[in-house]
Nucleic acid binder design. Sequence first.
DNA 1: CGTATTCATTGACATCTGTCGATGGATTAC
DNA 2: GTAATCCATCGACAGATGTCAATGAATACG
Lengths: 115, 115
Amino acid sequence: MSAVLPVIDTAASACCSPITGGVMDADEASTLAATFKAMGDPTRLRLLSMVAASDNGEACVCDLNELLDLSQGTVSHHLGQLVKAGLLTRTKRGTWSYYALVPGALPALADTLRV
Amino acid sequence: MSAVLPVIDTAASACCSPITGGVMDADEASTLAATFKAMGDPTRLRLLSMVAASDNGEACVCDLNELLDLSQGTVSHHLGQLVKAGLLTRTKRGTWSYYALVPGALPALADTLRV
DNA sequence: CGTATTCATTGACATCTGTCGATGGATTAC
DNA sequence: GTAATCCATCGACAGATGTCAATGAATACG
């Protein structure tokens, strides 16, 4: 039987060659580095964990904003970064914006760190 | 005799609570973010892969410097960042500095990304 | 309608970061 | 000892980044 590979077509999925799988070329390194860079900020890491921990796996900015001692504009900026990095999705319902983890994005990133 | 210092209190060893394991507090987020930040640069990612791919799992700056189109000072700077982040070790033998992966550092980081 | 709420975007600002060239210390080779 | 090699560190600089306050667009509510 052949293995079925779930295809996740995000920025995160593009960086799947493990770090320890030989010398990386510049392009691959840039792509993967962009994702790690998005996670290289405490606020964004907390946002990720808050989204992951919220009910239904999604949270709106109003909830996130209260827990962080930052202006609304700053939080929105960080959320935008995470979306751009392919780690979060944004869904607008009415006045609210709901953010959720991109399925498989974090595990795909974890795979690049496997030995 | 000098005192024995067996404790490796690096950033990598401290970040073991998974991102999806509940809302992270600020301290934990800062510690983990520092490690991801160190990996958020293409050059440093390439350096990691080059060290991992080299014989005996270690490489000297002279080798690394040739493959990257950067000045020696810049490469040394990046290597210092990776050491500071707890991802590489530095061993000086004679005139040469050899860098190697900190055992378990990358897998520990991968664990923080598990769902 | 008008007002309030939610949130992305903009402009401004201080700080951090990546890069280089130069310097200097340590070690090896002659 | 002198010269050469290896490499960390320093000073400088342009560009990126995190933050805020203010603005504006879209929607909901009266």
